[in-house]
């Protein structure tokens, strides 16, 4: 009965490979969506104000892109493990306050505090896994904790960034503005770490099919700890970079980053569940948001009142485009 099936199954194979070609095209389009949205925003800027497309223009417009990109990467690690961090913004603020005070006045203690805070992140990962807690609520509580600590460290806006940090962030390489180089570097390093190394596969797998990973003998506790510790590490880098740019700190300085970081990951093609994230996409998403947030809107003469709305609208438009593409994938 069976051998006669060959012709029929070859026929099926041919058909499904055509289907797969269509699938691959939709996937490619989807993968290019973050880059397309960035290109669109750049085009709009070039059209509205051609002078902005220059070394100086980019340095200015992308001023805050580095800390936003780093915070987005931090959020991306958490999302890769099917969790969400609602405290990354206040954490960045806390790190900023420590950077502008302890790290300058007593570098050793400052460094210990920052390393300790990465440890706290790792512990949170362990807690969430062991007690099977909803990360949204835990990190919501932690957002109070970080904010409280930030106020305790720096009750009034002020402090000063360490000189080496100021020097680093003011770096002016030839031809290409520093924020672009830094963003590229961040994207490539994280891409290599998460998408190319053998343990990166395990980290992403823990979001894709945790049960299967556990059955293959991997520790899900460890993957969660590593993902949260990485989020903490990039949160620390983001806070330091932010203070390197603004030179002084304020306990509320990072509050907006929680939502920006989530939006950046989603704009960059990430999904909330299933371990589908893209580091390069996340960086592009962060750049898009950084550009769209103020320079574009200023050039378009959108009053400052409506700038937040524009961010929301960009998110909705990109997600709508993604839904259209996904429908094609079906």
């Amino acid at each position: 009965m069976r051998p006669e099936m060959t012709a029929a199954s070859l026929d099926t194979a041919a058909r499904t490979s055509a289907e797969r070609g269509a699938l691959a095209r939709a996937r490619l389009l989807r993968g290019l969506l973050p880059a397309l949205s960035l290109a669109l925003v750049l085009l709009a800027i070039a059209w509205l104000n051609p002078r902005a497309i220059s070394y100086f223009g980019f340095s200015l417009m992308l001023n805050l892109a580095i800390p936003i990109a780093l915070a987005t990467i931090a959020q991306m690690f958490v999302i890769a493990g099917n969790e969400l961090d609602l405290s990354i913004g206040t954490f960045v603020g806390f790190v900023g306050c420590v950077t502008a005070t302890w790290l300058k006045d007593a570098p050793l203690i400052g460094a210990v505090i920052l390393l300790g805070s990465i440890g706290v992140y790792a512990l949170l990962g362990a807690l969430i896994h062991l007690r099977n807690l909803p990360s949204i609520v835990v990190t919501l509580g932690m957002s109070f904790v970080w904010q409280g600590l930030a106020i305790l460290v720096l009750p009034k806006p002020g402090g000063k960034a360490p000189d080496w940090l100021l020097g680093l962030m003011a770096f002016k390489p030839p031809f290409i503005p520093f924020p672009i180089i830094a963003a590229l570097l961040i994207g490539l390093i994280v891409h290599f770490g998460l998408m190319r190394t053998s343990y990166g596969v395990i980290l992403r797998g823990s979001g894709g099919n945790p049960a299967a990973l556990g059955r293959a003998g991997w520790s899900l506790l460890k993957t969660k700890i590593v993902l949260f510790a990485l989020a903490g590490l990039f949160g620390v880098l983001s806070g330091m970079a932010l203070i390197g740019i603004t030179t002084s700190a304020d306990a509320n300085i990072g509050n907006g980053y929680t939502l920006l970081a989530i939006a950046g990951v989603i704009l960059g093609g990430g999904e909330f569940v299933g371990g589908r994230v893209s580091p390069i996409g996340a960086v592009i998403g962060a750049l898009t948001l950084a550009l769209a947030a103020s320079p574009l809107l200023t050039f378009m003469h959108i009053p400052p009142d409506w700038q937040v709305a524009a961010n929301g609208a960009i998110l909705i438009i990109v997600l709508a485009a993604r839904v259209l593409i996904s429908r094609k994938e079906r």
Partner: peptide, 24 residues
């Protein structure tokens, strides 16, 4: 197993890596 034990977000090669700790 009857229920599929592959990670849908990973490639075929990456799924192979999950079952072989020595693929490093």
């Amino acid at each position: 197993f009857q229920e599929l034990s592959l990670c849908p977000n990973l490639s075929v090669a990456e799924n192979t890596r999950i079952n072989h700790a020595s693929l490093r």
